[in-house]
Amino acid sequence: MFDQILFILSAVITMGGALAVVFSNNLMHACVYLLASLFGVAGLYATLNADFLAATQLVVYAGGVVILMLFAIMLTGGVQSTVNKFGIVKVPGMGNAKTYSAAGLAAVVISFVLFKILKNAAAMPAKGQMAYESTVEKLGGLLVSDHVLAFELSSILLLGALVGAAVIARPRHIKDDV
């Protein structure tokens, strides 16, 4: 019963946060709601006994991504008004062919995903009491044995991003021609 209470709480936070992100007009508020939603996802992982994944979700999203988004929104100023100084609407109106086709494609993809999830859920036997076991050692073992290529590739990608950021942020010394 305790598991179910935790699951329902996490699910409500996740869904409520996600809906609030979509329906919020203020970009900054949307970011805060996104934080709540990501927290809910961490809770969902925790109810599935994926403790390492839950903690990673907190570290990566709550600590890194949301702060990064807040910074980006703050430094770019966000969208103050939808009309520019000439009275022309900056944000294109919804409801043209482009938006309909994008929405249709998204709906098809989401319905496939939903179908796949629901099909498995219907076939799944009633869940008993899951035995708790640590996932950290298994994950560590798998990362340096079966999935070592993916691990190394992603670390090279991150190293490249780090070097790239350093290069972009480096102050440029302008040569004195005189």
Binding site: A54, V59, G63, I67, S134
Partner: peptide, 15 residues
Amino acid sequence: DLDVGVFYLIGVSSL
């Protein structure tokens, strides 16, 4: 005493 105790602590304290 979580198995990921230190990691969890780093995660939540970033809030």
